[in-house]
């Protein structure tokens, strides 16, 4: 892996870890601080259609009420059954590769964890193995490894375990009108899938 590839791998890793955390945790001061980083903020509120809504959302006064509203939105989207489940389920998509992906998740994870020391924050660790956020975060951790052999695992890991159903999830999330922020998250995730995780 040359220097350019290494930087790109770390950037991909950072992106995947951020996306993973945003799917596993409600917006909190730490995540907001990350989202306020100039490069991050610029991309998150980028695009003319999203600019006003997402920017306003992130720029609001984050008092207790705002955090509670954010937690309620998170729950409505990702926890309650009428939302958009971030859990892999073969029968939620017509893509036949999804069934293969779902059943490969446990095996892939056990193989990874048998060979690689991962550090999962509590919010990630509390999710089931087939949670989109967990898989993205793990992929991100792999991509950020200083060991090129491990870093190279990130893309095939996510291609095998998440890609067949992750795009469906991202696309649905991108359509939400509940929260401009999560809608934007869906778009970013969808394009991450397109640019980085597609097999061809």
């Amino acid at each position: 892996m040359n220097e350019h590839e290494r930087r790109e791998s770390i950037a991909l890793g950072g992106l995947l870890q951020l996306l993973g955390r945003l799917l596993c945790e409600e917006l909190n001061p730490e995540l907001l601080a990350i989202l306020r980083q100039p490069d991050v903020r610029e991309i998150f509120i980028g695009g003319e259609d999203q600019d006003a809504a997402c920017a306003r959302y992130l720029a609001q006064t984050w008092n207790a009420e705002a955090f509670e509203k954010a937690a309620t939105d998170y729950c409505e989207l990702f926890v309650l059954p009428k939302g958009i489940s971030p859990l892999a389920a073969a029968w939620q998509t017509s893509n036949p590769a999804a069934e293969q992906a779902v059943t490969s998740i446990p095996k892939a994870l056990s193989s990874i964890t048998a060979n690689v020391a991962l550090t999962l924050p509590p919010a990630i660790d509390a999710t089931p193995p087939e949670h989109a956020g967990r898989l993205l975060f793990i992929g991100g951790q792999l991509a950020c490894s200083g060991d090129p052999e491990i870093a190279k695992l990130a893309r095939p890991f996510l291609q095998a375990t998440a890609m067949p159903w992750l795009e469906r999830f991202a696309g649905t999330l991108a359509s939400t009108e509940l929260s401009p922020f999560y809608g934007r998250l869906g778009e970013i995730l969808h394009q991450t899938c397109d640019h980085y995780l597609a097999t061809s």
Binding site: R7, E8, I10, A11, L12, G13, G14, L15, L16, Q17, L18, I34, Q37, P38, D39, V40, E42, I43, F44, C144, I188, Q191, T192, H195, Y196
Partner: peptide, 10 residues
Amino acid sequence: LLKLGSGAAA
């Protein structure tokens, strides 16, 4: 996306 990722990584 790379820009976003680099910022996030930092």
